[in-house]
Design a binder for these strands. Structure first.
Lengths: 343, 343
DNA sequence: AGCCGATCTGGGAGCGCTCCCAGGTGTCGC
DNA sequence: GCGACACCTGGGAGCGCTCCCAGATCGGCT
């Protein structure tokens, strides 16, 4: 077999250079638009790249630059929770968009089991990505601490489990959101305002519960017997509502820490013959685009924008990438109240 | 400055080899458990790797092996649809799991705009991934055809837009699912069975509509005036239901091509004072874990398992990876009917 | 005319890894 | 006792790219 122009092979930079009649170095400079390339050379190279259908080998590039152009988005959460949590879906989507907009690739990582932890750590330190956006809401989650030992730039979405300081965090104002919700109920004349709190092993639900309590106290109302904890699921919300009704049949409003639990609560209230919002007003948290407006009646809910959170996280991470000594800070995003028929 | 053991630097294979007192080649063999390494050498190397906290540089590895270990999962769908489609969430999750189980990394790609198309193509041909699982349901989507020109192994989830043959596809039996649903309604004594079909620019809804029609004809029933097309959204479902009721007030059942549209239909039926299932029985498609059982009444729905689909897709892709000449085939997965109170 | 700096170019080195090949050691059979 | 054949090891080459450095060219200035 004689020498053959391998059309099976992908063209390399060397091929492009030869085709354009310049050196590999010049070709590289032209394609990465470095300074000090003549206009003529640049054009010849770009034409050659186009003609040959050249696309650079990323492995070779990142071997020498020590940059991959990829950013990991890590969701550390039990499987069950993820499947039915549209907020996470929105986060993935937003992550993709925000990263794509700055020319970076998102690598999505789910991490919930023990094996996942070590695999995730191994992956992140394997040099596959330049940095990571991490969502690890559970207090007991070992991931954030494990990540600390790695020298990879990380920004957390929501509080990082078990770490109080020294990390970059972009969080929502959960307590402020709860305050908005409860103040809205108080203003509407409600006086026996219960709450269905989320799992108290996570910062966000803890803060929401605290916001509810403080706002009640500020309004001169008594929170006693009016709080019930549930697990963020529909049935959990339904059961918690039953418990609340049994304990305080006189309640006239309920602040539920998530849309999904609110759906369950709605069902229980309906079964108990309570009219919404006449007998019991309902306000929830998340303002999930699928759920909240689709309920009967549509839910008043505290709105948090995933795109906004991810945008801030990406911004911080990019700063961190070109200045590793950037001072860690807690970035708190404000939330708003979407008022609908349930309150 | 004298020579310093750089503890800032990541150890390389050479470092591990030196530490273990063997050559780079032996170290490589030991870590990749190749044949022909003595047990003693293997242990020394593994200990050294552990002690130094070594993790291989993937860029260097894939530069020579021409494998990245990563697989792309491409979701080509308008943004709005993705955000509120829990089936896609489940697909992402299943993709991650299935790929992780065989030691591969998932790289998730959303592609819906024009710019996304070229970026996606560029990315896939950039050698970032070894293959791709692609979901591109819309008939007009240019992505599948663009992918054909690339020499990258691809398996489609659901029909590939505009391509009838020569590609690997794992699809559900949409027509059979519709048949199950309608036969169930017929068996329950329903005779005027309407349908709210999905967008007829996609294979799946087309097949579901066809299944509905054929089953009615087989049962000696007349489909005339009983079909209405909608766009897979809640409000679309609600409007279609209104149209059907206006045209055929005597209908006694409706087969809806998605859970989300069924929610809208339920709302319209409720507002029209129809009892479910007494006056009108409702069966939908998807059996979305969040939606279908959560409705009032809970929805009877055709169940399709995303994990099963993705599993089959991964299996096919792996075969394709070590035998590029694998004959393309259409793999059709069966579906089942989850019967609940709405029918 | 001579020099200096700015602009442009090509070649060499090397990123960290895998693979090939040459060579060394041990074991078995005749 | 010696070839044949396993088993095991180390060195070299090279994947495709970027970066550094030396050199070439060209103005514009003294």
């Amino acid at each position: 077999m004689g020498p053959r122009a391998g059309d099976e092979e992908r063209p390399t930079l060397e091929d492009v250079a030869a085709f354009a009649g310049v050196s590999r170095s010049t070709a590289s400079r032209a394609l990465n638009d470095d300074a000090y390339v003549s206009a003529a050379a640049r054009e010849k190279v770009q034409a050659a790249a186009r003609d040959l259908g050249y696309s650079p080998n990323q492995a070779a590039r990142s071997l020498v630059t020590r940059r991959t152009g990829a950013i990991a988005v890590v969701l550390s959460e039990p499987e069950a929770r993820l499947l039915d949590d549209p907020y996470r879906t929105a986060v993935m989507r937003a992550g993709y968009r925000e990263l794509a907009d700055i020319g970076r690739q998102m690598v999505l990582i789910f991490s919930d089991t023990r094996e996942d932890l070590s695999r995730t750590v191994r992956f992140l330190e394997g040099g596959h990505v330049d940095g990571a956006l991490v969502f690890a809401p559970h207090r007991a989650d070992p991931l954030p601490k494990a990540l600390r030992l790695l020298r990879i730039p990380v920004v957390f979405g929501g509080q990082a489990a078990g770490i109080r300081r020294g990390v970059h965090v972009v969080d929502f104002d959960n307590e402020g959101g709860a305050r908005l919700a409860v103040e809205h109920l108080v203003a509407a004349g409600r006086r026996r305002i219960a709450t269905i709190a989320g799992p108290q092993d996570q910062s966000a639900p803890i803060d929401r519960l605290a916001g509810w309590r403080k706002t009640l106290l500020d309004a001169g109302l008594d929170p006693a017997e009016l709080a019930e904890e549930a697990d963020f699921t529909l049935s959990g919300g339904a059961n918690a509502m039953s418990a609340l009704l049994a304990r305080r049949p006189d309640l006239d409003a309920v602040f539920v820490a998530s849309d999904m639990m609110a759906v369950g609560a709605l069902r229980t209230l309906d079964a108990a013959g309570r009219r919404i919002p006449e007998d019991v007003a309902v306000v929830s948290f998340d303002d999930n685009a699928t759920l909240a407006p689709a309920m009967d009646p549509p839910l008043t809910s505290v709105h948090q924008d995933p795109r906004e959170q991810v945008h801030a996280m990406v911004e911080t991470l990019m700063q961190l990438l070109d200045d590793q000594s950037l001072k860690p800070r807690q970035h708190v995003l404000s939330v708003s109240l979407a008022v609908r028929a349930s309150s």
